[in-house]
């Protein structure tokens, strides 16, 4: 219940910020958006289109109503075009990209983290953690072009951009997932080291279980819980990173929609896209919290 309340507060705050942020800008926001060389007619048209000819509380209400009912329209010509269908087309592609990136991250990070923890202090550990540190530092908008040069232009294995088939998904998913996988590998190692110190691991070892069984069946299963929590919380960061990744690969998702709306100064689409992004983020975070409570009885009792 408390989780739901704080999620609702967060969403309301997001709504306030997104719909009224223009008013926090010093000067006439319409001037800022259109630039100084704009004509009076254009300004008035935009002012009406984003509802800024109305009092503040009405603007908030109108935007909320239009957003919820799907009546929100673009704020540049053609005015009659609804915003929601474009979002409906773009959102699944972004979610697909984020989920694929998450899968990539898990597949890379879990073996790496477990191996590093099992062989703590050895060359394996050092190599895995060095790779993880390097992975965190790689900017996506640089890794993306490097992968394109290697796998698309030189080797000609994968397409450069677009979203027509699963082959188009490979490079963007890797680009988006690398940083998360690096972070996750460090998390996995830490969680495994923690689990390996627990009494039940000592007991399992004392029982004469093979090191492999102790590692995977006892330590790994318990380390999985914090790892999955981090994964849920990092989903939001993935959505943010998706914007950059989508631009690199011309992936027609929410990021591409947002950037083209910014370029066209289509303020309503910008607001709606940001709000939908935020809803996804808040939703995933809340679900992660709830799932965590369901899976771990200790947390359930405390809450």
């Amino acid at each position: 219940m408390k989780r739901l309340a704080s999620a609702a507060v967060a969403l309301f705050g997001a709504l306030l910020l997104v719909s009224l942020f223009l008013h926090l800008v010093p000067g006439d926001p319409i001037d800022v958006m259109l630039g100084e060389e704009s004509t009076l007619v254009d300004r008035e048209a935009l002012r009406r289109a984003v509802g800024m000819d109305q009092p503040v509380h009405l603007q908030l209400w109108n935007f909320t109503r239009d957003f919820v009912t799907g009546e929100l329209r673009t704020s540049v010509p053609p005015f009659q075009k609804k915003v929601m269908p474009s979002i409906g087309a773009a959102l699944p592609l972004t979610l697909l990209l984020a989920l694929a990136a998450m899968a990539v991250a898990l597949v890379l990070a879990l073996p790496l983290g477990v191996a590093a923890a099992a062989r703590r202090g050895t060359a394996v550990d050092t190599a895995a953690m060095s790779a993880a540190v390097a992975g965190v530092a790689l900017p996506r908008f640089w890794l993306g072009p490097v992968l394109i040069i290697l796998f698309s232009l030189k080797l000609d294995w994968l397409p450069v951009s677009g979203a027509e088939s699963w082959r188009h998904l490979v490079l963007p998913a890797f680009t988006l997932g690398t940083a998360l996988s690096a972070f996750l590998a460090r998390m996995t190692r830490a969680a495994m080291l923690e689990a390996l110190r627990e009494d039940y691991v000592t007991v399992a070892r004392a029982k004469g279980l093979s090191p492999r069984a102790v590692l995977w069946r006892h330590a790994f299963r318990n380390a999985l819980l914090p790892i999955l929590t981090v994964l849920g919380l990092e989903f939001g960061a993935l959505l943010g990173g998706a914007i950059v990744t989508e631009k690199v690969f011309a992936w027609p998702g929410m990021g591409t929609l947002l950037l083209s709306a910014i370029e066209k100064r289509d303020y309503n689409t910008v607001r709606a896209t940001v709000l939908v992004f935020t809803c996804c983020y808040v939703l995933v975070n809340t679900l992660t919290d709830v799932a965590y409570a369901l899976v771990d009885p200790r947390v359930r009792r405390r809450a």
Binding site: A10, G13, A237, L239
Partner: peptide, 22 residues
């Protein structure tokens, strides 16, 4: 509560929104 609300945004998204408007 204010920090709660701000942390509810993906930080990068908010930065994009702000710089896009400004």
């Amino acid at each position: 509560r204010l920090t709660d609300v701000l942390l509810a945004f993906p930080g990068m998204l908010l930065a994009i929104f702000i710089t896009a408007v400004l």
